Simulated scan of single mutants.
Amino acid sequence: MILIGDEAPADPGAREALLDRAFGPARFAKTCERLREGRLPARGLSFAAKQADGRLVGTLRFWHVALGDRAGLMLGPLAVAEEARGLGVGSALMKAGLERARDLDHQAVMLVGDAPYYERFGFSAVHTEGLTMPGWVDRARFLGLELAADALDGARGLVRATGAIALTFGEAPRLQPRRAA
């Protein structure tokens, strides 16, 4: 049995190992990685698929982005361990993630991925025709999904990272000095 739930604080190490196995080191060179770099995933939108013994076999995260002049989410990466592929783990993660994104009132999601796989969840290149990425991307793999009617209708411009910035170990938040009254 595989359970889908929120990513736990102890999961990132296993998650990174799973992503390394699924995508290899080339994953760090992708344009979407530039949008995730130094950012925190969207709150409440990091998922883990685990076997009954607690072993991580799937992962999915969403990230805040601007889709031109619109707020949106970037989905990815979605990864499933080789031994769990073909069991519906990826589909279960997708359904849970998209349902939660709708429940949290997000309007639109974009991703770069395999069109035949993601089209079954409603993603289409039609929704990203007016958008550009900050680096090279195969246009046939640049897909969007409207979670609310017409959320991407007429969307134009650059996809940019907008999520919270992740502090690195030992880094203190930069506070603005107070002005004297």
Rank of each mutant, 00 (worst) to 15 (best):
A29H: 14
K30E: 12
K30T: 12
T31P: 11
C32Q: 13
C32S: 15
E33D: 13
R34C: 00
R34H: 06
L35C: 04
L35N: 07
R36A: 02
E37G: 03
E37C: 11
E37S: 12
R39F: 09
R39P: 09
L40E: 15
L40D: 10
A42V: 13
R43I: 06
R43Y: 07
G44M: 11
S46C: 15
S46I: 10
F47A: 01
A49D: 01
Q51D: 09
A52F: 06
A52L: 14
A52Y: 02
D53R: 10
D53C: 08
G54M: 08
G54I: 08
L56P: 05
V57R: 09
G58W: 05
G58F: 09
T59W: 14
L60Y: 11
L60A: 06
R61K: 04
F62S: 03
F62D: 01
F62Y: 14
W63L: 06
V65G: 07
V65I: 07
A66W: 09
A66L: 12
L67C: 10
G68L: 00
D69T: 12
D69M: 01
R70C: 01
A71G: 13
L73R: 03
L73E: 07
M74T: 02
L75E: 05
G76K: 13
G76L: 12
P77Y: 10
P77Q: 07
P77V: 07
P77S: 03
L78N: 00
V80D: 04
V80T: 13
A81Q: 06
A84I: 09
A84H: 03
A84S: 11
A84V: 08
G86F: 01
L87S: 12
G88P: 00
G88N: 03
G88D: 03
G90N: 05
M94Y: 08
K95I: 14
A96K: 09
E99P: 01
A101Y: 14
A101N: 08
A101L: 11
A101Q: 09
D103K: 11
D103Q: 15
D103A: 15
D103V: 06
D105S: 12
D105Q: 12
H106A: 04
Q107G: 10
Q107V: 08
A108P: 05
A108Y: 13
V109G: 04
M110N: 03
M110V: 15
L111E: 05
L111F: 08
L111N: 05
V112I: 14
V112Y: 01
G113C: 06
G113R: 11
D114R: 12
A115Q: 11
P116G: 04
P116C: 02
P116I: 06
P116F: 08
Y117V: 00
Y118K: 08
E119V: 03
R120A: 04
G122F: 04
G122K: 05
F123Y: 13
F123T: 00
F123C: 00
F123D: 01
S124D: 12
S124R: 08
A125P: 11
A125Y: 02
A125I: 02
A125W: 02
H127M: 04
T128K: 07
T128R: 09
T128Q: 07
E129T: 11
E129R: 15
G130H: 01
G130K: 00
L131D: 05
T132A: 13
T132C: 09
T132M: 07
T132W: 03
M133W: 00
W136P: 15
W136D: 14
W136G: 15
V137N: 07
V137R: 10
R139K: 10
R139V: 05
A140Q: 14
R141S: 15
R141L: 08
F142V: 02
L143A: 04
